[in-house]
């Protein structure tokens, strides 16, 4: 797993620990932040003579620099039954490993919160820097068949730290919009990057004619359809409308979603991340 996510923060991390992202701490850095009195920052090497001469109170002024800080990266994953559709589970695992690798590469801590109809402790990984634990989790996920719905996502905020973190929300968003609003509302304190995992196969690859019976993966309700070109068009329109609604909802909460419909690729996510930081 050599792929890396190049995520940048458009905000300043409040983390104390040095890392790779702009932070609120001052310390060893390259970016000048402000002047401080020598008494507040007793580093004679950084005395700025020009500023000291100009100081009306004749004190010594010291240049302080912004410290590059670390940030906590969380993967908030929807593990409802619908995420078991087609290759979504593999995508989840692949993204988990990629994100963990990248976070560790940046020196950030990585945590995982897997949500089904509630949040289970075995699908919780507290923020840390142990690749082994992530790999073990990925291995466990590989043999898991997803069940239930995604109600647990609403409680996920309780498992996130109080300070602002970077949260990847990986879900297919196959739940009602009010529920999505509640989730996003609870995640307001964090930087949320929604990744909406859809599979083209579920709506674009439908047959033109024939009888087809769909069984809902979450509530087991069946819908039998007499497929015909008009209905196929209607279904595709419904998915497009849904995509539109989801985008509007995410934007209302200040985050731009990325729809992954044509197979997972780290490059696509990287492009999205770079657009976001700009």
């Amino acid at each position: 797993m050599t792929e890396t996510l190049f995520y940048r923060l458009p905000w300043q991390s409040s983390s104390v620990y040095p890392g790779a992202h702009p932070g609120q701490m001052i310390g060893a850095g390259q970016l000048f932040k402000r002047h401080e009195p020598l008494i507040a920052s007793p580093d004679p090497r950084r005395i700025d003579l020009r500023a000291s001469v100009l100081d009306p109170f004749s004190g010594y002024r010291v240049r302080v620099y912004q410290q590059q800080s670390s940030v906590n990266v969380y993967l908030l994953a929807d593990m409802s039954a619908s995420m078991g559709y087609a290759d979504k589970q593999q995508t989840l695992i692949r993204f988990l490993l990629t994100a963990a690798n990248s976070a560790f590469g940046y020196g950030d801590k990585f945590g995982f919160i897997g949500c089904t109809d509630r949040i289970e402790h075995r699908w919780l990984l507290p923020a840390g820097q142990h690749l082994g634990r992530v790999s073990a989790l990925a291995k466990q996920l590989e043999h898991l068949s997803f069940t239930g719905n995604a109600n647990g996502l609403q409680n996920a905020a309780a498992f996130l730290p109080a300070e602002r973190s970077l949260v990847f929300l990986l879900s297919d968003c196959h739940f009602p919009l009010p529920q999505l609003r509640a989730i996003l509302g609870s995640l307001q304190g964090h930087d949320v990057i929604p990744l909406v995992l859809w599979n083209q196969y579920e709506y674009a690859a439908l047959p033109n004619w024939g009888l087809i019976s769909f069984q809902d993966m979450e509530n087991n309700a069946t819908r039998t359809l007499f497929m015909r070109p008009a209905l196929r068009q209607k279904i595709m329109t419904a998915y497009r409308q849904r995509q539109h609604d989801l985008k509007n909802t995410f934007r209302a909460f200040g985050s731009e979603p990325l729809f992954i419909t044509e197979g997972y690729s780290t490059q696509t996510i990287n492009r999205h991340l770079q657009q976001r930081a700009a």
């Binding site: 019976s213 039998t224 209905l231 209607k234």
Partner: peptide
């Protein structure tokens, strides 16, 4: 049981209502 083999679908609520079906 309508006897038709079912295919899994992530969320049937997304499929629009169809009277003819």
């Amino acid at each position: 049981n309508n006897g038709i083999r079912t295919s899994p679908a992530p969320w049937t609520a997304l499929i629009p209502a169809d009277t003819l079906s």
